[in-house]
Nucleic acid binder design. Structure first.
Lengths: 146, 146
DNA sequence: CTAACTGCAAATCGTTTGCGAGCAA
DNA sequence: TTGCTCGCAAACGATTTGCAGTTAG
């Protein structure tokens, strides 16, 4: 798995560094979406000396490499999560428009997958886009905010 | 139609002002997603003296009132568009991850609508959310950026 | 009349950039 | 060696806020 990533880094003319490894580890451990600041705090908890700038640079790089997905819940900051290729792990988000809380869901992803694939193909052809990913957001009010 | 909005404003204890009317007009005329700055520029073109702060405040208010939808294309700024209740006008977005260009599409919205309604109900029940809207984003590279 | 609204300028805050020093290959 | 990476501090840019004057209902 690590060799796999190394290859990916090479392909992008980038290097595998302790800092990057640590960031990847954090996403593997937490298995949820994290903001840049949350990643930064988790790194420091592991007694790792890093600057915010580096965190941002690496989250950006990992996103461009396709290892992370960038999410936006409308709370003014970007969030990131492991990009999982497997449909089984595929999921989307339910966002509370008041408190910003975001819940993952993976209901009906089977049907969704089939439907979105068809749509993706159609759109890609029509608008001359090479589509790489998609996100579905449902917005509403959570129990506590209602 | 204007009476309709007035009611909405009353319900929120807000007032219909020339500035707000002008902003609504702009979205009706342009019929596409606009950033706060774009709205600001269009207002000034109409020789309307407004501050950016007011634009932001009103875009925010109109979003909370459900008159506008807030969109995020990952280019660092928020975009807004008229919320159209009619399924006929319903659409989503195709975003280029390189240049940030966003294209509207409305393919297969009929099928989508049926599917998403079902999903919405299921999710609302399971996670105790009162879902108000949804957005689908497809990400990829446009013709020019490929 | 009075609470909501406004423009202005200053403040905020997430994110980016410039730079010299430090590593990976 | 070479050039990708790093931490730091400063810069940036979109959005927010405080405030005193203005306006809708």
């Amino acid at each position: 798995m690590k060799a796999e990533w190394k290859k990916q880094f090479n392909r992008f003319n980038k290097r595998m560094t302790p800092c990057r490894q640590a960031i990847i580890d954090i996403f593997e451990e937490k298995r949820k979406h994290l903001s840049a600041e949350e990643v930064y705090i988790l790194l420091r908890k592991k007694r790792r000396k890093v600057g915010m700038a580096t965190v941002y640079r690496n989250l950006d790089l990992l996103s461009q490499m396709g290892l992370l997905h960038r999410l936006n819940f409308g709370d003014g900051k970007e969030h990131y999560e492991m990009a999982r290729i497997s449909p089984a792990k595929h999921h989307h988000h339910l966002v509370c428009t008041r408190c910003g809380k975001a819940v993952d869901y993976s209901e009906l992803v089977g049907e969704e997958h089939e439907f979105l694939n068809r749509l993706e193909k159609k759109l890609g052809d029509k608008y001359d886009f090479s589509i790489q990913s998609h996100q579905i957001y449902f917005y509403g009010l959570c129990k506590d905010c209602r």
